[in-house]
C-alpha cells in the first residue's frame, strides 16, 4: 500500500500537544514487546507507507515509516542489494519505521554496522506537532546536529518517524556457513585471529558448544577462506533464524535477556542458558535473575527482551542520575509536554 498521511499524523500530534494527552505510537506491532508499556491514545503510522525514492546506484532508499520491512527488502533484492544491518522483523507486519525506532540489528552488525550507522536522514513530527527534516539522502552530511541517528532506538519518544533515508549495500556474491565444535574461549580466540587475518567473516554465533561463522565475498575469496580455516558446512538460512529469532533457542525461553558486552568479555554467564552472537559482543541469556549488575560489571548493559510482563519497572539498563537527567532534558527539547510514547524507555523518559 502506498499512501502519504503525514498531514493527518501531524494534526493528531498537534491536537495531542494542545490537549496535553499522551500518544502511543504504533505501526506493525511486531516489536511491541520490546520496551515498557505506554498508556495513551494510539497513533498509527501503518498507513503512512511506500517507497518514495530508490536508486540502486546511489545506495540510498527513502521510504515512509509504515512501509513493510519485507517490501523494502523485496525492492532491494531486485537490485541485488540489502539492508546490511539485517534488522529483525519478528513478524511479517514489521515496518521500516519500527525497525529504526527500535534500533535493533542482526548478525552482520559487528562487520557492516548497526541500524544507526545506515540512517542518513529522517523526517519526524516532534512533540509540538512540528514536522522537521534532519540529515538527507547523501552519504556525508555534517550540517547541524545529527538528530537523524538520535531517532534510532529512541522508540518514538523524541518524534513520530515519517520518512527515513537509509544507506543500502550490495549483497555479497557468495556466502558460506561453516561450524566448529569448540569451547567458548577457544572458539572466540580463533575467530578473532581469522578476523585479524582479514578473512571475509560477516557473522558469528556460538551455541551448544559450537561456533558457526558466515563467510561473504566473491566466490573465489570465500572458497579460499574455507580452504584455509576449514569447518563443517552448515545451511546459510541459519542466519535468518537468528536475525528473526525463529531459532529454537528463542521460542524455548520466555525469560530472555539481551546482554550487550565488550566482545572479549569472559563467558561470565556460562552456567546460564545462552546463545552468543557478534563475536561475543551480544549474549542472549535465559535467566530469572536480574542481569543488570552482571552486565555492568563487564562493561556492558542488559535489557529484558521478552518477559511477558507489562509491569516491569526497568526494561533497560538503569542510567546514572547525571545521564538520566541529561536524557530527560533532551527528551524535553523534542517533546516538552511528554506526550510521545511517555515511559517507553524509562519511567522518566
Amino acid at each position: 500500500m502506498i499512501s502519504d498521511i503525514s498531514n493527518k499524523l501531524q494534526v493528531q500530534v498537534k491536537a495531542a500537544f494542545d490537549k496535553k494527552t499522551a500518544l502511543r505510537i504504533s505501526a506493525g506491532n511486531s516489536k511491541s514487546f520490546y520496551g515498557r508499556g505506554v498508556k495513551g491514545e494510539e497513533i498509527s503510522v501503518a498507513d503512512h507507507a511506500g517507497i518514495i525514492e530508490y536508486r540502486a546506484s546511489e545506495l540510498v532508499l527513502t521510504a515512509r515509516s509504515g512501509t513493510l520491512l519485507s517490501d523494502v527488502e523485496t525492492a532491494l533484492a531486485e537490485n541485488n542489494q540489502m539492508l546490511a544491518f539485517e534488522p529483525p522483523a519478528h513478524a511479517p507486519s514489521a515496518t521500516l519505521g519500527g525497525s529504526i525506532a527500535c534500533g535493533l540489528s542482526g548478525p552482520r552488525r559487528p562487520f557492516a554496522g548497526a541500524a544507526r550507522d545506515f540512517v542518513l536522514g529522517t523526517t519526524i513530527i516532534n512533540g509540538k506537532g512540528e514536522t522537521l527534516k534532519f540529515g538527507g539522502q547523501v552519504m556525508k552530511n555534517v550540517a547541524g546536529y545529527d538528530a537523524s541517528r538520535l531517532m534510532v532506538g529512541a522508540q518514538g519518544t523524541l518524534g513520530v518517524l515519517l520518512d527515513i533515508s537509509i544507506k543500502v549495500l550490495p549483497k555479497p556474491e557468495t556466502e558460506l556457513t561453516i561450524s566448529f565444535e569448540q569451547d567458548f574461549e577457544t572458539a572466540h580466540k580463533a575467530l578473532r585471529q581469522w578476523i585479524l587475518q582479514g578473512q571475509p567473516v560477516t557473522a558469528s554465533y556460538y551455541y551448544n558448544g559450537a561456533l558457526s561463522i558466515r563467510l561473504s565475498s566473491t566466490g573465489n575469496s570465500v572458497k579460499k577462506a574455507h580452504e584455509m580455516i576449514g569447518g563443517e558446512l552448515r545451511p546459510n538460512d541459519l542466519w535468518q533464524s537468528l536475525q528473526h529469532q525463529t531459532h529454537e533457542f528463542f521460542s524455548r525461553h520466555k525469560n530472555l535477556w539481551r546482554v550487550s558486552v565488550p566482545a572479549s568479555a569472559k563467558s561470565i554467564l556460562a552456567d546460564q542458558q545462552q546463545l552468543v552472537e557478534w563475536n561475543g559482543a551480544l549474549r542472549w541469556v535465559a535467566s530469572d535473575e536480574d542481569l543488570f549488575t552482571t552486565a555492568k560489571d563487564v562493561g556492558g548493559h542488559a535489557s529484558k527482551y521478552r518477559m511477558n510482563s507489562d509491569n516491569e519497572e526497568n526494561i533497560f539498563q538503569p542510567l546514572s542520575s547525571t545521564m538520566l537527567s541529561l536524557q530527560q532534558r533532551l527528551k524535553h527539547s523534542f517533546d516538552p509536554d511528554n506526550i510521545l510514547n511517555p515511559g517507553r524507555l524509562y519511567p522518566e523518559l
Partner: peptide
C-alpha cells in the same frame, strides 16, 4: 561504551559532529 550499543538515546551520534 565498550559494547556495540548503549542504553538510552544515541548520544554518541549526537556528540559526533
Amino acid at each position: 561504551g565498550e559494547a556495540f550499543d548503549s542504553p538510552g538515546y544515541d548520544l554518541l551520534a549526537l556528540m559526533t559532529g
